[in-house]
């Protein structure tokens, strides 16, 4: 079946968009910073990708990432999927037979173990953000190194420095200490990469059997230092797909494609690229209807309420219908 499918991943740090064709190949991709403004960032992204490929006809839309609910309502998503599932399906499409997926994003990291082509086990960081993109961003800024050069710099290290990686806060103070005792930036950066990998393997991968092929993806996969530290710690080859930064969006697009293709009379809920011209705003309030006191979020388009969510009883979310069923 022909047609283009749009995948959108609204994450904490980056907002990514991918367009795939009917065969599931990526025809356009975009990676941009969320900068704490998920709606704006997504709409900007849609404008950019539409300009790049001339507003193609979209047969289906999938959204994922921590901002998936919000994004799903705005664009009119056919499917809203969590980021663990979309990352797994994307990696499987690029590396068939993949057994282990290491994923490090802006604020969370995951490990996904696959067996016989299905997700067998997974873990996601619960308490500590050490080793995720935003932590690396901060440390790069502290050292005055552009984040893009961080990985290259680690590879130039001559003698490794061991940095405490148990906790982001302690890693930072240990790093400052190492800096003050005169270690070179290259060695410190490399030490940091190794500490983060150690933290990741100890926290997330504990008790899990890591088997090849191993795929490393997420925004942090661009960091060659971390990739090298993984290879060293695991003693395995770690593959980094070219699309590593937009795998979530790619997976969401693949899900949208599958969903539409399985329908007997496929029709997308996509609101069209024109949504980027609209004015969106959100408002939140506490419901006092019962003792539950849920935090309700209200999404408005051009001043008209489009959707509400956050309630447990359905009082608010069912008062506006936006045609999809989610977990909340």
């Amino acid at each position: 079946m022909d047609g283009n499918y749009l995948g959108i991943d609204v994450g904490s740090v980056s907002t990514n968009l991918v367009i795939i064709n009917g065969e599931g190949r990526i025809t356009a991709k975009l990676y941009r910073r969320t900068s704490g403004r998920p709606i704006q960032s997504m709409l900007e992204g849609m404008r950019e990708i539409a300009e790049e490929c001339g507003c193609p006809a979209i047969a289906g839309v999938g959204v994922t990432g921590s901002g998936r609910e919000l994004a799903g309502v705005i664009v009119g998503a056919d499917i809203i999927k969590n980021e663990i599932t979309t990352h797994a399906v994307a990696a499987q499409s690029i590396v068939p037979g993949v057994r282990t997926i290491l994923e490090i994003g802006g604020q969370d990291s995951k490990i996904i173990i696959l067996k016989n082509g299905v997700v067998y086990d997974f873990a996601m960081n619960t308490v500590c953000a050490a080793g995720t993109g935003s932590f690396l961003d901060r440390q790069a800024a502290r050292l005055g190194v552009p984040i893009e050069e961080f990985g290259e710099m680690a590879l130039r290290s001559l003698s490794p420095v061991r940095i405490a990686g148990r906790c982001a806060v302690f890693a930072e103070s240990d790093m400052i200490h190492k800096q003050q005792s005169g270690h070179s930036n290259e060695d410190i950066v490399n030490g940091l990469c190794e500490a983060l990998v150690r933290n990741y393997l100890n926290n997330l991968a504990k008790g899990k059997e890591i088997r090849e092929p191993v795929v490393f993806q997420g925004g942090v996969a661009a960091n060659k230092g971390i990739a090298a530290a993984f290879e060293k710690a695991l003693g395995m080859k770690v593959m980094i797909p070219e699309e590593h930064a937009v795998m979530g969006a790619f997976g969401a697009a693949l899900y949208a494609r599958q969903k539409i293709m399985n329908e007997s009379s496929p029709k997308t809920k996509f609101n069209g690229f024109s949504v980027m011209k609209r004015d969106y705003g959100t408002k939140s309030f506490e419901c006092n209807g019962c003792a539950g006191m849920c935090e309700i979020v209200e999404l408005m388009m051009d001043g008209i309420v489009q959707a509400r969510w956050g309630d447990r009883c359905g009082k608010w979310s069912s008062s506006v219908h936006y045609g999809h069923r989610t977990i909340s």
Binding site: S66, N82, T85, I327, S328
Partner: peptide
């Protein structure tokens, strides 16, 4: 909830 959703997908 992300974990629960992913678990159910799995």
């Amino acid at each position: 909830m992300t974990r629960v959703e992913a678990f159910i997908d799995m």
